[in-house]
């Protein structure tokens, strides 16, 4: 493991760079909705790079199928959880910090903490 093999090391390096940038973005961006951009977008390519490098290093078929399953699951669930968090936060009146328009709320009134939460089922 001392020698440098570009096929394995470059994906791992790119992936860990993106994971670190995502963490920096999560720490630095001003509000929850902007932080969701960092955590949902950057981590898909970041983990994809690291899993690719790991699959090329662990050549066993068992490792390959498990890594492929984790990667597929990540690609499916990351946008869904970002969507669920953004929806829950907006409808439960966590105010976004905007410099542009808010077209969800045309009246210019954000949901207030006393509002009745919506009773319909968002997940299905």
């Amino acid at each position: 493991m001392n020698d440098f093999s570009p096929l394995r090391d470059i994906p791992i390096l790119i992936g860990s760079f993106f994971v670190l940038t995502a963490a920096v973005g999560v720490l630095r961006f001003p509000d929850l909705y902007s932080r969701l951009h960092a955590s949902s977008k950057l981590v898909t390519l970041g983990s994809a790079g690291i899993f690719l490098g790991a699959a090329l290093e662990l050549t066993e078929a068992a490792a390959f199928t498990r890594l492929a399953a984790i990667l597929l699951f990540q690609f499916l669930t990351t946008p869904l959880s970002a969507y669920l968090i953004a929806q829950a936060a907006y409808l439960r009146a966590l105010p976004p910090r905007l410099s542009g328009p808010d077209e969800w709320n045309q009246l210019g009134r954000h949901p207030q903490p006393g509002d009745e939460p919506p009773r319909e089922d968002p997940a299905d």
Binding site: V26, L32, L36, S47, I85, A88, L94
Partner: peptide
């Protein structure tokens, strides 16, 4: 806010997977 905590917790689990 609690939203930040949920988001960061979700992201923390992804970090731990990696």
């Amino acid at each position: 806010s609690w939203g930040d905590r949920i988001m960061a917790f979700d992201f923390l689990s992804v970090n731990l997977i990696v």
